[in-house]
Simulated assay, not measured.
Amino acid sequence: MANRKKRKQPIDGAWFKRVCSQRGMSMNGLAKVAGWSSRQIRDGVNHGEMTPELLSSCARALNVHPAYLAGKYGWTLKLEIMKDAEVREHWLKTAMAPDSHPYAYSQQEEIDLYKHFCNSLLLHGIERSEFMRLEHKEQEKIGHELDQAVTEVLKKHFPEAQKGAWAARTFEDSFQDEADVVDAMFDWLEAHGKISVERQAAPDSQAN
């Protein structure tokens, strides 16, 4: 018999349980929705590793990104600024909340945006070679306007629709270090006295 052992990837079991709790889902309930046995899920959580297939099924059932469910962004909670309990709680309720990482984001990552754009051009009778002959600024302008037009149509029927360009952004792209995390919370941190910013006064206008 061929070796059917599947590769597994590490997960943070404690974080996995936290997400389940936030979604109001028990292991047994998750198993029913995900289509796997509760034993398989518990073994994965307890051993700190799961197959991509099992993780994806659980993530879909919980409507969260698989990487988020695996605890991939837990490093943000180990930053120096997170030693402040209030800051940590705010971060968990905002950027690290389940609703900030819907499963749809993982599906968007599988889309080749450039190929999708070229297919849109071709569908309307425009060859890629024609588009490439344009100046770069003109290419960007067309891409922006096309995305804007499609978004406006979709918003009439689906108010929550976002621009397609959003799919090109990922959590990891946005947050690489503590400076990125602080920047994301900057307004809140300043409003709650967690950081202070020295603002320079505008120079006095010279008298005529």
Rank of each mutant, 00 (worst) to 15 (best):
A161L: 03
G74L: 09
M82S: 03
F158I: 14
I111L: 02
S26Q: 00
C118V: 15
M185P: 06
D84V: 06
K93I: 09
L55E: 02
D180E: 04
M185N: 07
K6Y: 08
V19H: 01
R128N: 00
A201P: 00
K5R: 10
F16N: 02
E49P: 03
R42H: 05
S106M: 07
G125D: 01
E198G: 13
R60N: 06
K163E: 12
V153H: 14
M25H: 00
V33D: 06
L189I: 08
M50A: 00
K72R: 11
K141Y: 11
G74K: 08
L134C: 10
D84Y: 12
G143C: 14
L121D: 09
D99E: 14
M50Q: 01
W15S: 01
L122E: 15
E190Y: 08
P102K: 02
T151L: 13
F16T: 01
G13A: 02
P98N: 00
L154H: 08
H192Y: 13
Y105F: 11
F175C: 01
D112Y: 00
K83A: 11
E86C: 02
A85S: 12
G164K: 00
L189M: 13
P159M: 04
P203A: 04
E109G: 10
W91S: 06
E109S: 10
S205A: 15
K17C: 06
V19R: 10
E172I: 06
H157E: 13
Q148G: 12
Y73V: 01
E80D: 06
R4E: 05
W188L: 00
I111A: 05
D12K: 04
R23T: 01
D177Q: 07
L146V: 12
K17D: 13
